[in-house]
Design a protein around this nucleic acid. Structure first.
Length: 507
RNA sequence: GGCCCGUUCAUCUAGGGGUUAGGAUACAAGAUUUUCAUUCUUGGUACAGGGGUUCGAUUCCCCUACGGGCUACCA
């Protein structure tokens, strides 16, 4: 019988999680949904020095907004609780001890100063990257180099120590990566990583392997920055005798900065004039795509395409479609640069997919924040006529403020260009005609105005810009008749009358 | 420096021993629209370089270059 697919997203709460982090969560989610498995949210907070309060909530909220749902995790519990490594602290020690008993790990008493000295000495000898490895360990303060009596004494005296993995010499470590295929390392190149710190906490390397084992994780999907330490993890599984249940690995290509070199980093913040995060986090001076007016559907669609593609020409995907189309085989191997322009296009596409009602509901929080009052039914109408003109949600309002308040300012240059005094009388007649419409709807208005133009033998170009100017103050916007329909008869007519007075100033 | 992973238009990418190397974004031009936006049409720009293997290489192999990651009692 097939083992149930279980994946985990395991961020460390050291700051705001950017696009890359959410993309990792998303790929985990898509795969789990496609295969009907479980997704776990585990918090890897073994480094108390780097802990940032609020980071955990930020991750949870970001995922929630993006529509990434978990089946188990720190925020919802589950059969393998607790899901926060700091709360699992007591359970790691015995695994470290087990490795020591098996001869796969050892105590190391070296102080930070001694380690520093070792590195300086080796660098002075021409070694640019000194490592605590199978050679170095023989000359250091540890239970491999020291006598048993000495070690026992130090332990008895309560000397601080760490537990290091005893990486074997010259062994080939080969593992299959779902994205990269077979990857090979030689154990002699690997160092004796610390598994258990002197503060009583495990390091990532131990906690990660132990928890994945305990939580029956079947696939480890994480960023490419983990590839160099993957062989250490593979070796750890082997040392525990867990090879038969070792998860599959998938190391994702990194997301690169919009400009310049390097991977996207937590410290990139807002420096590109475009949010690189899902949500605002004011205390950390971080602004989010949500607050910018991104739709979560567009957000996941876009980040999914950063490194993955379906192999077809379809680009606009709903969440369900992404789940159906997703596979690791179609993830690329090279890093992808984040492109704000393409991101905007995705948002525009998803806005077009929404109904006026849906858009109105998304716009409401923005309007409330700006203290703009509105009628829901009216708002829906505005959204319907504005949606082809919006890239971000606030554009629905910002590109058509004249739907909500008096015209703030008229485009004077255009008035000078389009307004002809000799047409004044005919324009007044047209206004009267419009005022006489009883059924004030787009088709009615259009029929009336067009009939008027025909009777008076005037062209569209002579009258439409004037109407638009009178109703919207400028030359952009939805079709004039639709605009009047939305505005309603009272306001439309009032603005037309008022415009005459304004135009009169431009003889 | 060492180890590992990469390299197709400006960007995201498809493709794969013989193709006019395809799509999308951005950009430009045109059409539609009374305007803007939408939509549609058209256009330019890409297989990092050098060696092999082969009748033939962008595709397979090697080397070089370039890019990236890692190189902590951080994850």
């Amino acid at each position: 019988m097939e083992q149930q697919v279980r994946l985990r997203y395991a961020p460390s709460p050291t700051g705001a999680q950017h696009l890359g982090g959410i993309r990792t969560a998303l790929y985990n989610f898509l795969f789990v949904k496609k295969l009907g498995g479980k997704l776990i949210l585990r918090i890897e907070d073994t480094d108390q020095a780097r802990y940032v309060p609020g980071a955990e909530e930020y991750v949870i909220n970001s995922c929630k907004w993006a529509g990434i749902e978990f089946d188990e995790g720190v925020h919802i519990g589950g059969p393998y609780a607790p899901y926060r490594q700091s709360e699992r602290k007591d359970l790691y020690r015995k695994f470290a001890d087990e490795l020591i008993e098996k001869g796969h790990a050892y105590y190391a008493f070296d102080t930070p100063e001694q380690l520093e000295e070792m590195r300086n000495r080796m660098m002075a000898q021409g070694n640019p990257s000194p490592a605590y490895d199978h050679i170095t360990r023989q000359y250091m303060q540890n239970s491999v180099a020291l006598s048993k009596d000495e070690v026992d004494l130090r332990l008895k005296n309560g000397e601080p120590y760490v537990i290091r993995i005893k990486m074997p010499r010259n062994e080939e470590i080969k593992f299959h990566d779902l994205i990269r295929g077979w990857v090979t390392f030689n154990s002699s190149q690997l160092d004796d990583k610390v598994l258990f710190k002197s503060d009583g906490m495990p390091t990532y390397h131990l906690a990660n392997v132990v928890d994945d084992y305990l939580m029956k994780i079947t696939h480890v999907v994480r960023g490419e920055e983990w590839l160099p330490s993957a062989p250490t993890h593979v070796m750890t599984y082997k040392m525990f005798g867990w090879e038969d249940v070792m998860p599959s690995f998938a190391h994702l290509p990194l997301i690169l900065k919009p400009e310049g070199n390097g991977k996207l980093s937590k410290r990139d913040g807002d420096k590109y004039g475009f949010p690189l995060y899902a949500l605002d986090w004011k205390e950390q001076s971080i602004s989010g795509l949500k607050e910018k007016g991104f739709l979560p559907e567009a957000f996941i669609n876009f980040i999914a395409f950063l490194g993955w593609n379906p192999g077809t020409e379809q680009e606009v995907f709903t969440k369900e479609e992404l789940i159906a189309a997703f596979s690791f085989e179609r993830i690329g191997k090279s890093g992808a640069r984040f492109d704000p322009e393409k991101a905007k296009w995705f948002n525009q596409q998803h806005i077009k997919l929404k109904t006026g009602e849906e858009l109105a509901n998304l716009l409401i929080p923005y309007l409330e924040q700006k203290n703009i009052t509105f009628d829901l039914e009216y708002l829906v109408k505005v959204c319907n006529v504005m949606k082809d003109r919006a890239v971000f949600i606030p554009d629905l309002y910002e590109a058509g403020t004249y739907f909500f308040q008096d015209i703030a300012s008229y485009d004077e240059d255009t008035i000078r260009k389009k307004w002809k005094v000799e047409k004044r009388e005919i324009f007044v007649n047209l206004i009267n005609k419009i005022e006489s419409i009883t059924n004030f709807t787009e088709p009615e208005i259009e029929a009336t105005v067009k009939l008027f133009m025909k009777e008076n033998n005037i062209g569209m170009g002579e009258i439409m810009p004037i109407l638009r100017l009178a109703l919207a103050g400028g030359l952009q916007g939805p079709p004039v008749f639709a605009t009047m329909d939305v505005l309603g008869k009272n306001i439309s007519v009032a603005r037309l009358h008022k415009s005459i007075k304004i135009f009169d100033n431009f003889q």
